[in-house]
Design a binder for these strands. Structure first.
Lengths: 356, 356
DNA sequence: AGCAGTTTTGCATTCGAATGCAAAACAAAA
DNA sequence: TTTTGTTTTGCATTCGAATGCAAAACTGCT
């Protein structure tokens, strides 16, 4: 039998009793000793729904308060096989849209009794190490708003770590997803462009490996085709402000007819594009050039920009992501689900009748 | 003696050996069994600097790879009394300056073998619960870029959790701090304003409880006084774009002479202020009105703004914060340190000769 | 008071890795 | 080959809380 000093409950065995060393963190045994009860009782007091008499709870709580006892989440995690940690993977700096989501997700996780273990992912190797780290820390789940290969996802699945994808998914693989589908709104926005006599558009897309980008490009092309608007130029950026500005320059240099409207795959590039048009090319937006984009980040509505854009309901999406991850943690067997939110047009002021 | 099945090392005792259940996560015992060694050996293989023969290491690593074994950070944390978690407290949405720092800090922590446990703090009660949570999770340290009362800080100290403050500190209490002191740059910027014949300035400040705000206000007033520039109006915002815009309106309504320059305590408010001046009041910036501010966030250099501002070296500050927290974790006894970085003027284009 | 039925309580064990100590294996010197 | 010294290895215990099980303490009813 172990001579674990804790195991001795009767306090008569003075020889081995560890005194309440000043500065040492109080454990459930310390509380138990002070309250004159067993460690189990202390444990039960801190576990909601356990059978405990009011009298006992009171005594324990009093002792706990005196010792400033709080259960050790690490030890608890070891025995319950639940860490209450959720890895949140964000891919950093380029898209200023993510911080908003990140803060919201963190808050919601908190409210659900979960903590956010934050990881930044810039590339595939990052993702690799992050997944190993998450595994080491026994995270209960992963919310991924960053790039991840299918193999990496399958590894997580094999390890039975639930994953919720934020604004990305694998088409040919079952997965749990929160997603924003702006196609309806895009359709109406493009129709509006057609009414404003736009015939020629240019497209500034994002990184090809990015799913959101690909989807937006696809639906934009579809919508334009349906409305009889031609794409006269196309260029690729990386979601950043600078790449939006560079994109406009590249479009201007491409031969073919001048577009009257530019469609940017995200707001940040649209802002770069707009600034470039105004301050370098001396164009008026929207009079000389219309611009539309996607995301609806806060900045896009600053008076300098007032972009006509399609907003994603980030708040609701973040909420949904957290709800879904905690559901999957609770019921890992339940089937996958995809929650698709509609976008919302922010009218803005970056479109006007086409120059003829 | 416990009948812990793990404890039996000789594999002859078939009756109690837990088979390598498919899907069950491999433990060090599983690896030990497969490699035909003791659990201790496995443990030592994963602890750098332990005494292990090359032969053994090889055998163990092979088995570990086969079982996809990674040490359980939770269990390790329990015994070593080190969670490798650092709580990062950020106060959210208002100041778009924090995400940049947050991502950088997370990356640096990662590089130092630590993980960021993210908490958002909007008010004092939040701080309270966050501190309890951090305590429960046994974080090795705290990086606080959010509001925290002195009592709360003292509680953390009493619990021997090292804290590094990011851009805030308690003057009358020893603490470890990373800070940016823009006073030199402010001095020269204000001198420049004086040369440009500015005589009357207005100030848009931030929340009074915020230290950075108070410091900036203080040094601004000092610098202005020294350069003989008078403050004709003063108003308080909350660091947000909207409050910057509102601030300008409020200044315009205050009687007293019209200011020729507006000093905003952060970039975000300066941007709101600039947009309001241009699009609502029809003023030209900088021709009719100069604006300067603090922070140097990315956006402040977009062509629509090109703010003349004083940048904080966020990258270096984040790096320093992480270095300091890991030092304090390693050597809790060592004395406090305050690392103060200078700012850097970004010339921008938001100041000009004063209108007469 | 006596008995069955219910609720509380405590005991002992468990989670998975780390580590002090002693035993075992190895290397080097006599 | 024996002895001494050094490095490896394994054993047993530890960290702190949760929990199945059985014992103990209540409850209500006759």
């Amino acid at each position: 039998m172990a001579n674990n000093p804790h195991k001795k409950n009767p306090p008569e065995d003075e020889s081995k009793v560890i005194p309440l060393i000043k500065g040492r963190r109080a454990t459930s045994y310390d509380v138990a000793r002070l309250a004159g009860v067993s460690q189990s009782a202390v444990s039960r007091c801190f576990k909601p729904g356990s059978s405990i008499s009011g009298k006992m709870r009171e005594r324990v709580m009093k002792a706990a308060k005196e010792l400033e006892y709080q259960p050790n989440a690490i030890a608890r995690g070891l025995i319950t096989q639940r860490s209450n940690l959720v890895a949140v993977l964000v891919s950093g700096r380029l898209n200023l849209y993510y911080p908003e989501a990140l803060f919201k997700i963190t808050e919601e996780l908190s409210a659900a009794g979960l903590r956010a273990l934050l990881f930044t992912v810039e590339n595939e190797e990052d993702a690799e190490t992050v997944i190993e780290q998450a595994w080491q820390f026994q995270v209960d789940g992963v919310i991924s708003a960053s790039h991840m290969t299918q193999e990496q996802y399958q590894l997580l699945e094999k390890r039975k770590i639930p994953v919720v994808f934020f604004n990305r998914y694998f088409a040919d693989h079952p997965n749990t997803v929160v997603y924003c589908d702006p196609s309806e709104q895009l359709e109406s926005l493009v129709a509006q462009l057609a009414e404003l006599r736009h015939k020629k558009a240019a497209l500034i897309s994002g990184p090809v490996e990015n799913m959101v980008n690909r989807e937006r490009v696809r639906m934009t092309k579809d919508a334009l085709a349906r409305s009889g608007i031609q794409i006269t130029a196309e260029t690729q950026g990386d979601f950043s402000y600078e790449s939006g500005a560079a994109g406009l320059q590249s479009i201007k240099q491409q031969d073919g007819d001048e577009p009257t409207v530019i469609i940017c795959v995200n707001d940040m590039m649209a802002m770069g594009c707009m600034d470039e048009a105004r301050s370098v090319l001396g164009l008026k937006v929207p009079e000389d050039l219309s611009i539309i984009s996607f995301d609806g980040i806060g900045m896009s509505q600053f008076s300098s920009y007032e972009l006509t854009t399609i907003r994603q309901p980030i708040g609701r999406m973040s909420e949904a992501a957290v709800r879904m991850i905690s559901d999957r943690v609770e019921h890992p067997e339940q089937s996958h689900e995809k929650r698709v939110f509609e976008g919302a047009v922010i009218p803005g002021g970056s479109i006007a009748r086409a120059r003829t």
